[in-house]
Amino acid sequence: MPVRRGHVAPQNTFLDTIIRKFEGQSRKFIIANARVENCAVIYCNDGFCELCGYSRAEVMQRPCTCDFLHGPRTQRRAAAQIAQALLGAEERKVEIAFYRKDGSCFLCLVDVVPVKNEDGAVIMFILNFEVVMEKDMVGSPAHDTNHRGPPTSWLAPGRAKTFRLKLPALLALTARESSVRSGGAGGAGAPGAVVVDVDLTPAAPSSESLALDEVTAMDNHVAGLGPAEERRALVGPGSPPRSAPGQLPSPRAHSLNPDASGSSCSLARTRSRESCASVRRASSADDIEAMRAGVLPPPPRHASTGAMHPLRSGLLNSTSDSDLVRYRTISKIPQITLNFVDLKGDPFLASPTSDREIIAPKIKERTHNVTEKVTQVLSLGADVLPEYKLQAPRIHRWTILHYSPFKAVWDWLILLLVIYTAVFTPYSAAFLLKETEEGPPATECGYACQPLAVVDLIVDIMFIVDILINFRTTYVNANEEVVSHPGRIAVHYFKGWFLIDMVAAIPFDLLI
């Protein structure tokens, strides 16, 4: 008679799926529990143990900040960024110097990925580790590398530091407007667009060049630039800015003055950032001319202004700041037409079709709590990747769950009947059967004279019903998954307890 339990259901295979997918890609990662103190490590794979030199037993239950890997060259700011990422709910990448158990130093890129439950609360953290440099290539500990984003994938490793954006290309926007319009339909740009040429040739750093990471940081200074100062900065030398009595002219307006920039070969870094931020506020060169004239017309309804409409929906549905990093990277690809469009465009503009998908598509409701890094690593669709929660398995109709209350009560009843059979069957065979043979035949009273025979008949009927119930009862397979398919249940029961239950259900007393 089957006594099969499996009270692990309803099970959740999400954690096993993450481990299996990460292991298949030869990654070095740990999984931490966000619900406990210090976000203790609950799993670390073999790749991480080989990377740091510690065994799994030495890593388990330690804080996922990996303070046991810190050393003299470990930056405090990087460690603080990892700790801050564990307090938030967004994906974050941090470069930090770690030390192995043998004392060797290596520069590592740590990717902190939160995993949320159905309520939107962070319950786990996945920390992925990628070695960037070994100890002989690690720089000085005073050099802070965590304020910069990861290198873009479309640049060669040897040319990542030679990417320079020439400031004269930004200063000569109005001069290039006529050349853009003359391109017409034969050019790649839309009317009114501004073409910015980027020099990728390796050259020595000069005062006129600005690194790509500095251009990325310009967006942080746009908020500090007032509207009046932006307007004066875009007017140009024809209309000098008016300053109040006793007030000095704005240095932001002076930063885009061609006369002032041409007199000296070098520009201050602050002026460069502010000038680029001011130019980015204009949607095209037409807006710059309109600002000089004193009238700013409404933005025209053409394809170039609607190019950012799908980007707005993608940004609203993005799951991490990696989408913004990807957008900034692609927006700086050289030799393309940049349409400086305000994100607050007309909502009635139709979304044009684009061959290049900048932001990841909208994630469906079932995966809105899973970050983009987890979705990318697992390579699963929205119909396959579940949320991290207890999910009731989908069972067929008329199927009994093996952990249901009805099955528990039924098993206790069958257990009592088995005990009765084990006690009274030998007793009936030894004593009652002998008395029946010696006594007179009682054929007239039937079952009324033999109450134990009636009980034995009921017990046999219950055993037959138990066999039928076992054909529709779920079970737990070797992978700790609840199986509810009727065919698989029948095959599993035939290979197991079916023969024993059938022999126990045969009414031998009635056959004798």
Results as ranks from 00 to 15, higher is better:
Pro297Ser: 07
Glu372Trp: 07
Asp355Thr: 14
Asp287Ser: 09
Pro241Lys: 07
Asp321Arg: 14
Ala185Val: 12
Arg92Trp: 03
Arg181Phe: 06
Pro150Met: 07
Pro237Met: 14
Ala223Pro: 13
Leu87Ala: 15
Leu69Glu: 01
Val3Cys: 08
Ser351Met: 07
Glu23Met: 03
Arg5Trp: 15
Lys364Asn: 09
Leu296Lys: 14
Ile82Pro: 01
Thr174Asn: 05
Ser266Val: 12
Asp67Gly: 06
Val384His: 04
Glu214Asp: 13
Val384Ala: 04
Val113Leu: 14
Asp119Phe: 09
Ile363Arg: 14
His368Cys: 13
Gln247Leu: 07
Ser284Leu: 13
Glu58Val: 04
Ala244Arg: 12
Pro258His: 09
Ala9Lys: 14
Thr152Gly: 08
Arg92Val: 11
Thr13Phe: 08
Pro386Asn: 04
Gly226Tyr: 06
Gly183Ile: 14
Phe340Arg: 14
Val8Ala: 14
Leu173Phe: 14
Ala121Gln: 12
Ser207Tyr: 13
Leu167Gly: 09
Asn257Ser: 11
Asp342Tyr: 02
Pro310Trp: 10
Leu212Gly: 07
Leu167Val: 09
Gly345Ala: 07
Leu212Ser: 05
Ser206Gln: 15
Arg35Asp: 14
Ala211Gly: 06
Ser304Lys: 12
Asn45Phe: 01
Ala156Lys: 13
Leu225His: 06
Arg176Met: 06
Glu58Tyr: 10
Ala160Val: 15
Leu210Lys: 01
Lys21Thr: 13
Leu311Asp: 14
Ser320Leu: 07
Pro150Thr: 13
Cys265Phe: 07
Gly186Lys: 04
Pro240Arg: 07
Asp342Thr: 03
Phe22Ile: 06
Val36Ile: 07
Ala382Phe: 05
Gly314His: 06
Val8Met: 15
Val325Ile: 14
Arg301Phe: 01
Pro334Ser: 09
Leu212His: 08
His7Pro: 14
Pro300Ile: 14
Gln61Trp: 08
Thr145Ala: 14
Phe48Tyr: 01
Arg56Gln: 04
Ala193Val: 06
Glu58His: 05
Phe125Val: 06
Ser178Asp: 06
Asn117Met: 15
Asp342Pro: 05
Gly345Tyr: 06
Gln25Thr: 13
Pro114Ala: 01
Thr319Arg: 05
Ser320Ile: 14
Leu171Gly: 14
Ala203Asp: 05
Arg5Gly: 11
Thr353Val: 14
Gly224Ile: 06
Phe29Lys: 01
Gly149Glu: 10
